[in-house]
Design a protein around this nucleic acid. Structure first.
Lengths: 229, 229
DNA sequence: AATATTAAGTGTGTGAGTTACACTTATACA
DNA sequence: TGTATAAGTGTAACTCACACACTTAATATT
């Protein structure tokens, strides 16, 4: 089976920048390429878009195939279309931005990835293609997003404490936040539901657990209400 | 000359949402399609991406070819990749977002566009393909952008008065703004350079002309400083 | 020449929200 | 029982957003 076109066509791929948070540092999931070009180098998970699937579907499929990740927060980032991004031929790549919860950390290697590993964003190795630019843009977007959209919850378990949330914000924004002001602000948004449980982890006073009120947030978002954190 | 691929490939296009401001209403530039599909319908200017040009270059080329517009503010918006966007075959479209100054309003029809016309955003006709969704997203983005980036200047002449700028903001945001607060805010940004000229248009006191301090803004942007207007 | 019309330009007081800042409480462990 | 650890809590100063009305400089009208 082969297809013919009168004019040359480039190929289309998707690439995913997957962020995770281990409670301490912001991390990115990379795969080691099992095939040329850039065989053996680290790269963003991704691959070719099939002619019969949407871009979002392609991103989810590739993520599943290469890392085993499923049901993540996924959003389109930007489309990279410089002519010589790929040494083989013209390849345009639609980049995606994903956030995963800690329990989804266990990943599987497969098909065209020898290996998959989490790297702290501060210690990213050299990457294949223009993946470093893509990662930079995604990181920039995450920092921006965190400030005006309650998206940090996607990087924590469903039940979390205010301290965990604050540590996440501090890790992503790269600066310390005042505990009292942070809590005041979060409570004023009225999007956290306190649970009846508490979590005691090692020493120290046990902390109140919360979950994010997704339904309430969706309603407010539809009305065009803005958040700032 | 023909090209063969083992697997089927979709086509790649760019589409541009071009905004203009006539001093009263926000407008969008549309072209009437001269060829099928949707022949005779209004659509966003755009077309196929060549294999040897970047996406940005393709957007600029198509804009020039179909509307005569050149040297506009241009920024990538979003990539639309649903499977059946185009009745002919799989077509992925990278949408762009353009802002043009009033004096660039005169447009030329050409090649595959019978006609090009400005429409007030409140009176957009039915559009070909999924162009209505694209336009909606662009409009939403413009409203958002205007609030946290000084981008409105791209829709005015290089020299403008504060009243003109305020009218633009009111037209895009769809609400009246307080004159004194608006001026106070704009002055506090320190990004407007007062010129030695004044403009007197018809009756009324002549207004101070300003130009936007692009260089200063670029410097501040590099430092990651945020603006809100 | 006097008067009317039009749009430009200007300052202050109030309330809301952001920021800075230090001690008490509940648990685990020695 | 006391010591270490992290959770939890309130207030005062300041900055920013918002509401609000008159004066000024020009053109148009009589």
């Amino acid at each position: 089976m082969s297809y013919t076109y009168t004019y040359p066509r480039g190929a289309l791929t998707v690439d995913c920048v997957v962020f995770g948070f281990d409670g301490d540092e912001l991390q990115v999931l990379l795969i080691r390429r099992g095939i040329d070009p850039f065989k053996g180098d680290w790269a963003l998970p991704g691959g070719f878009v099939h002619v019969d699937e949407s871009l979002d579907a392609a991103a989810r499929r590739e993520l599943k195939e290469e890392t085993g990740l499923d049901r993540v927060f996924l959003e389109q980032l930007y489309t990279f279309g410089e002519i010589n991004r790929d040494p083989r031929e013209r390849v345009v790549s639609v980049a995606y931005f994903a956030l995963v919860r800690p329990r989804d950390y266990e990943t599987r290697a497969s098909t065209d990835a020898d290996d998959a590993r989490w790297f702290p964003v501060a210690e990213i190795p050299d990457l294949a293609f223009d993946h470093h630019s893509i990662l930079e843009m995604a990181h920039h977007r995450l920092r921006g997003k965190l400030r005006y959209e309650p998206v940090g919850f996607e990087l924590l378990e469903e039940k979390f404490t205010l301290s965990q949330l604050q540590h996440l914000y501090e890790a992503v924004l790269g600066k310390a936040l005042d505990k009292r002001n942070f809590r005041k602000k979060l409570h004023s948004l009225e999007l956290l539901i306190p649970l009846k449980e508490k979590r005691s982890e090692g020493s120290g006073r046990p902390a109140q657990l919360f979950r994010f009120d997704t339904k309430k947030y969706e309603k407010l978002k539809k009305k065009g209400i803005l958040f700032e954190i």
